[in-house]
Design a protein around this nucleic acid. Structure first.
Lengths: 347, 347
DNA sequence: TCGATTTTGGAGAACGTTCACAAAAATTAT
DNA sequence: ATAATTTTTGTGAACGTTCTCCAAAATCGA
């Protein structure tokens, strides 16, 4: 059989040493780029490595060095897969492997989180990226649970004692609401996200605060779970409440799309009857009907910064904890206009 | 400072043994649930484990057993993050950790793939899920490159000698085209996906084949890269080609959404002027305007089956390679209707 | 040329676990 | 009671690497 032959066991340091006629230690020096190895030995060893197709065993190396060259991402559910590509990219560039744990909690969050983190710790990652976009955990809890692994919190600010990278939710919300105000809207409705989420909390809080400050009216509010169906339902509730408003701020794009569907199903027109603003700038927002005005969050940048932050933490472990704040951007499309361009047609 | 104190180094087998007054081997037996350990020793050891907060070191264990309790996912770019949640779920359930490598190739695919797989092999995963949804690699190449790690190919069929889990693309395409034919359409246009993708190839091939068999007319075709903007552009090309057609089959939902936008921008109506069908059933399809008729692919099931397949492979390594084929489902919404309900309004 | 210094190479231990044995203790059979 | 058996516990080696030290060779200053 003219098949390519693979040795049952991969080559080790000793195999290479034997073939090159040196000690295994010398081979170790070569693969670790020690300066103290003569040109000719280097050559010999490199040839042997190539001939045997040798690669150092990460596991053995990890055992003795205590480093794994791996970064572990702990993320809530599916949620922040958006950032994964950027994290992977950065990690890979610096020779780190990426490991992934999706966190799913039943009732006792802290207990589950502890179990989860203990399991992660047992595999010895060098650093940890924590993407838990809710507001349930406190800074002290988290520091206690993570113990000795350097970590960066992503998309959430627990306090000023933990390293974090996040997008300014207040600013994003402010831009959205100010945009609607500047168009002349005075009567607002809100579709909030699930209240345990950090982002949802801040967006809701901030929107309400600004509306109050500017003496605009918040005539109705409903809550969804960030999904399209929940946006649809929330909008139905708002419509059934019998209140009238001309501007709608949704805590994310999915719910905004659901809400727009509900509006259209009632025969209402966007933006003539109601202006709609979303949050995130998901790709469909530019192509839906009408294209959605929204607040762009650069998830790629978020992931990339999170990784950078972690890497610099690994390099200089004693840096004081600090936060990096990224800024969102308002993308104005056709779902917003001045109120009552034409009289609202009741459903 | 009343801070919780963490020992600088985590407890080892020997620490536990010392505290419990037994040998380290006995502790090992306890954590591996060996039947041969007396009730009282078990109790003592368990107490010591609890007291010291001991967890076995995965790395050390991995070194000696040759197993890592980790499954590595090798996926093209960001592409199939959709399946990740299901894969993680299954893996976690069976005590496996998930590791992730995104593959990005420059010119020499085989060479890059080799480097990538060698790196993965060095960290010793127990199994490999390969999500490379293109048609460039051959079965023999892949078997050669992966060497000794059990692997399952996901969303791609390279041949009958590799384990694979995939969704029947032919059947999905057939359902879509038959649906349009049964509505009475005879003049078709296609927006294909990038030709290096397995899915895109099969969808294009199959659509053309069925149209030919049924003696319907394929009047125009364009190609996109699976993105919304590319769908928009492709549609513009089709419109500018001056041909007339009543049915459009797009190789995925994103391009379908882009195409619909282009149609609406030309003043054309869906489905009155042109019926549109997509592929995938992404969440926005039910909420866009009009809601899109599409072919649902259950990515969760795909990921879950892939993991199951791999696990059974790990259990029984000598099972003959086989493929699991999942079936898609046609979701009929409002973007398709009988042709020319009213005369087409030219742009 | 000799001793002192620098380079290069190698031996032994260690990392934390499991595996293959062997020893000790407990149980059973005679 | 004693031998034969079974159950329980302990010892030594190994996994593949890096680390700490020490020996040999090469280089250097006088």
């Amino acid at each position: 059989m003219p098949e390519k032959h693979f040795p049952s066991a991969p080559a080790t340091l000793h195999d290479v040493a034997r073939l090159a006629g040196v000690s295994y230690q010398t081979v170790s020096r070569v693969i670790n780029h020690s300066p103290n190895v003569s040109a000719e030995t280097l050559e010999k060893v490199n040839q042997a490595i190539a001939a045997l197709n040798y690669r150092p065993n990460r596991v053995a190396r990890s055992l003795v060095t205590g480093k794994s060259n791996a970064i572990h991402v702990l993320a809530l559910d599916v949620y922040h897969l958006r950032m994964l590509p950027a994290m992977h990219e950065g990690a890979h560039e610096h020779g780190f492997q990426l490991r992934l744990t999706g966190f799913r909690s039943s009732e006792n969050v802290l207990h589950d989180l502890d179990a989860c983190l203990r399991d992660i710790a047992a595999s010895g990652p060098d650093g940890l990226l924590i993407v838990l976009p809710w507001a349930l955990t406190t800074e002290q809890d988290l520091i206690g649970l993570v113990r000795n692994i350097p970590f960066v919190v992503v998309g959430n600010r627990l306090g000023y004692g933990t390293n974090a990278v996040l997008i300014d939710q207040r600013e994003g919300t402010r831009m959205a609401i100010e945009h609607l105000l500047s168009l002349g809207h005075r009567k607002f409705a809100l579709i909030d996200g699930p209240s345990q989420y950090y982002d949802a909390q801040i967006r809701s809080e901030t929107a309400r605060k600004i509306l109050a400050e500017r003496q605009a009216e918040l005539v109705a509010a409903a809550q969804g779970n960030f999904s399209m169906p929940s946006g649809y339902e929330a909008m139905q509730q708002l419509l059934e409440s019998g209140t009238t408003f001309t501007a709608l701020f949704c805590a994310n794009d999915e719910m905004a799309l659901g809400a727009m569907r509900a509006l259209k199903d009632r025969g209402l027109h966007i933006p003539q009857d109601i202006s709609v603003v979303g949050f995130d700038d998901l790709s469909f927002t530019a192509y839906c009907d009408p294209p959605l005005t929204t607040v762009r969050q650069d998830f790629h940048a978020l992931g990339a910064h999170a990784l950078q932050h972690l890497l610099s933490l690994l390099k200089m472990p004693n840096t004081a904890p600090h936060q990096r704040l990224l800024y969102p951007e308002l993308i104005v499309r056709q779902s917003t206009s001045t109120p009552s361009v034409r009289p609202a047609r009741g459903g």
